[in-house]
């Protein structure tokens, strides 16, 4: 559970994630993720839907989502890439948007687009089990199972790597046929659990 202290300022949270609050709070549904008309159209087109509300007021507000683990990420100007379903709450000062991720999304079953969060402030991510934060450096690229990927920050290039060979088609697949390869400098958040993905079956 995430407790947010508010003193007249605002946070954006996943719609319906509030479980309790004390003090004075106003909850306002933000159409199109609070990204204006352009954001709304983009989200509609890309299918990276995100129902967001703005919480404003005085006091403490508690957020939770299906008892999943919550991880706080502090952003100082960098860009966080996260799946909309894993984003619980952001500071109002953070800008959210949508970006194209390419083939990766297809293997994850999460669509071809992902959500970005930019600016200065904190964001809360949900994960199934506490996330492991892994550093990627130039010498040590990282491979992640698409079903376990939650988010990443930094200057990372990602591409889909496939280990599909003729044996996959003989029914002797390794179950690890697709991986995301991250190269560059940055951090990757991985959850200790796998979503059911198309790629996980081969």
């Amino acid at each position: 559970m995430l407790a947010v202290d508010l003193a007249g300022d605002a946070v954006r949270a996943k719609n319906g994630a509030m479980v309790a609050y004390d003090g004075q709070m106003a909850f306002k549904k933000m159409t199109g993720g609070g990204e204006g008309l352009r954001g709304m159209v983009t989200r509609r087109l890309t299918g990276e839907q995100m129902a967001v509300m703005e919480v404003k007021g005085q006091g403490t507000c508690y957020f939770a989502d299906r008892a999943t683990e919550i991880n706080l990420v502090r952003l100082q100007g960098e860009k966080l890439f996260v799946e909309a379903s894993n984003l619980l709450c952001t500071d109002a000062a953070l800008r959210t948007g949508t970006t194209f991720t390419g083939l990766r999304g297809a293997s994850q079953g999460n669509g071809l687009f992902t959500t970005t969060v930019e600016g200065h402030g904190q964001a809360a991510l949900t994960s199934d089990g506490p996330a492991v934060v892994l550093r990627v450096t130039r010498e040590y690229p990282l491979q992640v199972d698409p079903g376990a990927y939650v988010a990443h920050t930094g200057q990372l290039k990602q591409h889909l790597q496939s280990g599909v060979n003729f044996r996959t088609f003989l029914g002797e697949g390794s179950g690890e046929a697709f991986q995301l390869r991250f190269e560059g400098e940055g951090l990757v958040y991985v959850q200790p659990s796998e979503r059911t993905t198309v790629g996980g079956e081969v």
Binding site: L142, Q143, V144, D145, G147, S174, E176, Q191, G200
Partner: peptide
């Protein structure tokens, strides 16, 4: 077991 690897280096 199939599908239990979540990430690796190397």
């Amino acid at each position: 077991q199939k599908g239990k690897m979540i990430a690796y280096y190397g």
